[in-house]
Design a protein around this nucleic acid. Sequence first.
DNA 1: TTGTACGCGTTATCAT
DNA 2: ATGATAACGCGTACAA
Lengths: 339, 339
Amino acid sequence: MKRKITLKDIARELDVSISTVSKALKNSEEIGRDTKERIQAFAKLYNYKPNNIAISLKNKRTKNIGVIIPDIVHHFFTTVFRGIEKYANEKGYNVIVCVSDESFDKEVINMEMLANGSIDGFIMALSAETQKRNDFNHLKEVTEQGIPLVLFDRVTDEVVCDKVIINDEQAAYDAVKKLIDSGRKRIALFTTENYLGVSSKRADGYFSALKAHKIEIDENLVLQLPFQFENEDKSEAFFKSRSFDAVLCVNEIFAVRAMRMAQSMGKRIPQDLSIIGFTDGILSKLSSPSLTAVAQHGIRMGEIAAKMLIEKVESDREQENFRTEIIQATIIERESTIH
Amino acid sequence: MKRKITLKDIARELDVSISTVSKALKNSEEIGRDTKERIQAFAKLYNYKPNNIAISLKNKRTKNIGVIIPDIVHHFFTTVFRGIEKYANEKGYNVIVCVSDESFDKEVINMEMLANGSIDGFIMALSAETQKRNDFNHLKEVTEQGIPLVLFDRVTDEVVCDKVIINDEQAAYDAVKKLIDSGRKRIALFTTENYLGVSSKRADGYFSALKAHKIEIDENLVLQLPFQFENEDKSEAFFKSRSFDAVLCVNEIFAVRAMRMAQSMGKRIPQDLSIIGFTDGILSKLSSPSLTAVAQHGIRMGEIAAKMLIEKVESDREQENFRTEIIQATIIERESTIH
DNA sequence: TTGTACGCGTTATCAT
DNA sequence: ATGATAACGCGTACAA
């Protein structure tokens, strides 16, 4: 087994000083032709590569980005992650991922682990619990330490930092408008409990679209469901007791399950019921009929987040100006709506 | 902005030596009651945390694991990743993820980036291109340097290291047997081009199950498709020109698309056609009808991989004994088969 | 009980 | 043209 070779090893072997080796390998003009060549040849032969950790210690730059997301087995988040990783890699950065699992405590622990020198900056989406508790001290501490932070999708006004979001409210508005334009009158909303985070903006868009089109708001047409739609009974009761001809769902799992439920009750999609869901993932594409969906452009969101972060990281002067980038969601029309 | 505080800062502030501070914070018995308390109080007040990078340099241990996977927007891989991340975090390790994007070059570059001290060991699944080229020098180099490596799912015999796989062949055999037992006679196989990696084992299981049950093998019933099943024409032609009453698909995307294609041609699932797919992901659960699937237990696979790796990392003595853990796949019966 | 010195691997500055 | 030294932050063997 050939262990990693260091500058010191080369220096000893070639009987020169460490600093000579260091300079020679950087092609410094200070070093003589022949010594330089000797050293470079030797280094290449033994495949010398500088130790990242030592360089990090010296430069106080790790070239690592910390990403903290609530869930990784999740289409939208992986998509954003893909964008982050792609951009970061191009810029020579590596990405350390931690999953908060929607837990406040894990989010805190993960941030602390990484904040002690392991990363140059954070990109994250808040856990559900963090949003519920409205406690953002761990984020504030990090920014106060001068560690750059970019929030995406699940953000908060409480923390001053860069942010990337989609225009959730407008997207929901547009989706509902599309349903109305196609002749739908009784439009339901399937959302998460407590209108958590983005869901509340989507609900806002839903309500304002109805208002703008003079459709009376019927709170009975709003169904709040637990995260994974585990509660089939609740939705079944909803379907049985309400009459509606369209649904807007705040995520694609809700959308697919709504569709299945409707179909099992003999409804035809889209003739009897139109469905639009947020997140244009594999489920929307491959369900049958395929789902009209609000594309959140996760990859772009990730790229932008990474770009914003790296800019901050690489700018040495203290930053005070923070931006919020808004990505335009687009509606991908498929078979679950009439057009 | 309060920058991170170091031992040196505390020492200067309290007018003691750095090593005194260091010892005091480790509660060393060498240090006097009062100095210890003074130092600890001060450290707590200023929220002192040791710098990970410095510790890494000193210990030659980063407490980072490098994970390289072909794709992240992919149910199975994210599932495995979840298992890795979970176990690693419990053990105080962080996970650096790189996506090879099925490319040999990116895999090599990513490994090199991380191998220079950034991580203590690798967990990876080979990219498609790497498998095709049969070139594993980058893996061998890493193991020769003494960096522990665990391969999962997409493995190779060419590299001597720990591995975690599922019993693909047996699982395919069992799936086909289940189809046969339910009365199916003409069973098709939808696989990737060139029987890449795991697909070839699944094909082996398919063939041997047919043989074992005295069903004549008809090569015309094997359809090779590009990765994402982009080629709808090819599969449509297949459906039109062949007659078969069951399909085994090597992944869930193939399975869902096969089902949609069949349905669009008027076939009923499972009455006219039974379908079983590998990967028990969200697609299988939520498609309609839901898909009988081979569960690969990604989380467990990830946990085991992380466990194997960390054991190797933390064992100081040179390792020579490598294991291959085989996880038993299980068939989850749903609506796309008769039982 | 406290402090000094050294080393982890690298680079930058200053001597020779 | 080459080398010695200090520094990044920490821990520890050894000295006082």
